[in-house]
Design a protein around this nucleic acid. Structure first.
Lengths: 349, 349
DNA sequence: TAGAGCCTGGACAACGTTGTCATATGCGAG
DNA sequence: CTCGCATATGACAACGTTGTCCAGGCTCTA
């Protein structure tokens, strides 16, 4: 279809509004090209007088160094990439911000993109960032096979996976203790007298969801409670389906007296459903959220520290870049149970 | 201090894990450099057999095109920059995401950074992005003087300002109707019988804050209500100070019966304070927030559409890049009053 | 005053890619 | 059999910057 490149292609050949280059600055200041480079980079060996002339020419022309050329020459971009699931998800805001702060402290820029939970899009994004020659990549995996990144790692791109482990490759991973957190949360409900406890979570192919489910099962088993299939609802996140799932658990012949929700979004919807429900139902959610304390009752949650996840991952990334690291590691950050009322309601059957 | 460049500088000279280049691929496939380029870019004029050999070499070597070099040659980067205030602020998540979606639809990547409401940092970031030669820039201004961007615009960088207008330059701007929204919100309180209405907002040097204050004043004036100084609290956003401000308004000799809050974060803190207050106090907030409907009472808000702001701005940016635009425009998006209870409480004096 | 040494400044190649242009090859028509 | 043409391929310069290296002018000392 692309029949021999068009000659008039807007993108080819002529630059946009052709910017001044160091050569232009040099000509105007009446000095050599390299002298301009020296001034721009604050290198020593330039007379104050010469420097003044160059600076003047720079200001007059509105010159700005072309970092693409610089990168090409130096081999490093001073930028890192972040592939996450959804920038609009409140969980990733602080994470992203934390990564940015660390990058900034290291003089690097952050380029990011959302995978929308689609493995293909994750790959496309990650590779596009590699083509831009980011120095390193922080990835929140959407897929479960990351062998496609092996050539990049071999080529020297630093890489850290966050929130979920990398698939089929050996790499640094920073996680929350999803299993332990969920177990604690469910155990908390059991400690308050509940035995019929529902679980609503994401698809178990997502690592965090699977781990939280595992924690739920473990807590139940620890208490010698047999879990009924009707109590578990997996792969359910959109509000309508969460609503239906919750309503079913609450209405069957053997209704649950408490629900454990597997993430942020599910918890919020569950709160809505329970608010309409006549009988009080206990609730513990994974992930904290704003205003959880202001609801009636306050929502008890297993909180993870998104900022700490981001910060830890980014710091590890830069340690890789500094050559400090040898073996890939798996770092697990603890979660924290925050009691606010909803998780301390007694069973009402 | 940098005494003549160090010879052993890690960053200079040798590449990291020296990646294969097109030249390497060409050598391995036994073809010319340009032929590899053709295959990589899907240009026509290559025999299937040759293409196969080249593709094989690419896979074997793990080659990935170096976009920095490509950019240097082509003059365009297929990436746009976004300078916002704080990625962790829930208002900017959807905005950022919307910009990203539009960029993606145009085959561009998004590079972003947070200014943390600091004009110097905004400038530093914006210029760093320009040095990377982004094709265009979406800026949520922190400062009020953007003349420093004039050379960039002249050099052909597309530019759109969002949420707040650009300062001292003529450029495209996409805003919410802050004035009208605030006026409607306050008028709503007045319509429900309130006359002593407090206002808590950000520093008036921030455009949105100033506009919302203006809306408040206009609504009061429309109703012939004289505003007492004690009712207004400006430049106050951190929770502790908002708390104190609210408490003062509510306790004086002439306490307010309703409060209009100038943004998200202020509203949330106000909700906390009012929840502890004995007398019911009406509340309308600028900006919607999650769970506003679940609180007791639900919080009435003036909602702006963050995603629409981002989308509109990004689309305009790409229209600039396509050469479709001529005159800078100021686009104002309407706000929407969402009644949920807190704004409909009658005055209780 | 001559030679050594330092300091400033510039010429030049290289980074990896793409656009331009030239060449080689094969094929059909005259 | 030769000429012309289309098609496949490659050589080469250029993009804007930085690292290397060299030249010229200066100061300082013997």
């Amino acid at each position: 279809m692309p029949e021999t490149a068009r000659r008039t292609d807007r993108l080819s050949g002529s630059r946009y509004g052709n910017r001044p280059t160091m050569k232009d600055v040099a000509a105007r200041a009446g000095v050599g090209l390299k002298t301009v480079s020296r001034v721009v980079n604050g290198e020593p060996g330039v007379t104050p007088e010469t420097e003044r002339r160059v600076q003047e020419a720079i200001d007059a022309l509105g010159f700005r160094r072309n970092d693409s050329a610089r990168v090409l020459r130096k081999g490093r971009t001073a930028s890192i990439g972040l592939v996450l699931e959804d920038l609009a998800d409140p969980f990733y805001g602080p994470l992203s911000r934390a990564v940015e702060e660390v990058a900034r402290a290291h003089g690097a820029l952050l380029i990011n993109g959302s995978s929308a939970e689609d493995p293909d899009r994750e790959q496309e994004l990650a590779l596009a960032l590699c083509a831009r020659r980011v120095d390193g990549l922080v990835v929140i995996p959407a897929g479960d096979d990351h062998r496609y990144l092996e050539p990049e790692i071999k080529a020297g791109v630093a890489m850290v996976f966050v929130d979920r482990p990398a698939g089929k490759i050996d790499a640094d991973v920073v996680l929350s203790d999803n299993y332990g957190g969920a177990r604690d949360g469910v155990a908390h409900l059991i400690a308050h007298g509940h035995r019929r406890i529902g679980f609503i979570g994401d698809m178990p192919r997502i690592h965090t969801a699977a781990e939280r489910l595992r924690g739920y099962r473990a807590a139940m088993e620890d208490a010698d409670i047999e879990v009924a299939d009707a109590w578990m609802s997996l792969g359910v996140t959109d509000p309508q389906r969460v609503r239906r799932a919750a309503e079913e658990m609450l209405s069957g012949p053997d209704p649950v007296t408490a629900i454990f929700t597997g993430n942020n979004r599910v918890t919020v919807t569950a709160v809505r459903v329970l608010a309409e429900h006549k009988r009080p139902v206990a609730l513990v959610g994974f992930d904290d959220f704003e205003l959880a304390d202001l609801l009636q009752p306050g929502v008890t949650v297993v909180a993870q520290d998104a900022a700490a996840l981001g910060r830890t991952a980014a710091e590890r990334l830069f340690r890789q870049l500094d050559g400090d690291l040898i073996t890939p590691e798996r770092i697990e950050l603890p979660t924290r149970l925050i009691t606010r009322g909803s998780g301390e309601l007694p069973p009402a059957d």
